[in-house]
């Protein structure tokens, strides 16, 4: 109950922060780029539209997750609204979880709205509804949930600017860490390989949620891979939230 109340209030606050305006940018970019790039492309125009659309949902979602995730908790502390809230019989973990769920709800609604716009644009080009695309978007959403947890974790101990930079670094590392896996295969077994493997295990691999290519080019998507990615997302997000709660538990609000 307490978590739901905090989550709904967080959603209200996000709405007030006019994040919905981002949607207009999304629509504009989707329409303009798909039109423009399609003109320059010799091959399949629809594939370009799908590519640009999915990349835009991912990009705008990531921006929302980082900007809101790093700002909202900090604002509570900075504006001292947290004083009256935590003076009530509320666990700090409940507060943080409420904030997380409120942000996830906001991102869910925004991703949903972007999906509707995207599917509409696609429909106008193909006159068919490609349900498989929704699968790619679902996994983008899982990635965004993880990124929200990352932003929330950083915001529990640093300023929004630093937290945004850290989160962005996490995002970039997450999308490049797959190359470590390739490197591991090429390095001879020994200490170096073990170190690389350890690094790869600790670092996030956000490419686990990237099924854009498979969907756009109609490649097969094995259920085992999808299942593994889902579990990876849930476990990693839970781990990050737990870490955030541990940091937040002993924090002084001066």
């Amino acid at each position: 109950m307490k978590i739901t109340t905090i989550a709904l209030n967080t959603f209200k606050e996000a709405k007030r922060d006019r994040v919905l305006y981002l949607l207009f940018f999304f629509v504009a970019i989707c329409l303009l780029f798909s039109r423009f790039l399609a003109l320059l492309t010799v091959g399949d125009r629809v594939k370009i539209i799908k590519d640009v659309g999915l990349a835009s949902i991912s990009l705008f979602g990531m921006l929302m997750a980082i900007l809101m995730g790093t700002g909202l908790v900090y604002k509570e502390i900075d504006k001292k609204t947290i004083f009256t809230l935590l003076a009530k019989p509320i666990h700090r973990a409940e507060f943080l979880l409420g904030k997380f769920l409120g942000l996830v709800l906001t991102i869910f609604i925004m991703t949903g709205l972007m999906t509707v716009v995207f599917m509409l644009i696609l429909f106008l080009h193909t006159f068919t509804v490609e349900w498989k695309i929704l699968l790619a978007i679902l996994y983008i959403f899982f990635e965004l949930c993880l990124m929200t947890a990352v932003a929330l974790l950083f915001s529990t101990f640093t300023t929004p600017i630093l937290a945004s930079l850290y989160s962005l670094a996490f995002y970039l590392i997450g999308h490049l860490s797959w190359s470590l896996e390739m490197l591991i295969k090429k390095v001879k077994s020994g200490a170096g390989r073990a170190a690389l493997r350890l690094l790869y295990t600790v670092l996030p691999d956000l490419e686990n949620f990237n099924f854009k290519t498979e969907v756009v080019h109609n490649l097969p998507l094995p259920a085992k891979l999808l299942g593994w990615s889902f579990i990876y997302g849930v476990v990693y997000t839970a781990f990050l939230l737990l870490l955030a709660m541990l940091v937040f538990r002993r924090r002084d609000f001066i």
Binding site: M1, K2, T5, I6, N9, K12, E13, R16, K79, K80, T81, F83, T84, L85, A87, K88, I90
Partner: peptide
Amino acid sequence: VGFLPENPYFYDYLTGREFLGFYADLLG
């Protein structure tokens, strides 16, 4: 326990009624 901080800071986008409603919800 009830607490009123010095220079109280609250969610300024809520109305007075909504504000009390928020805390009433938190208290179940």
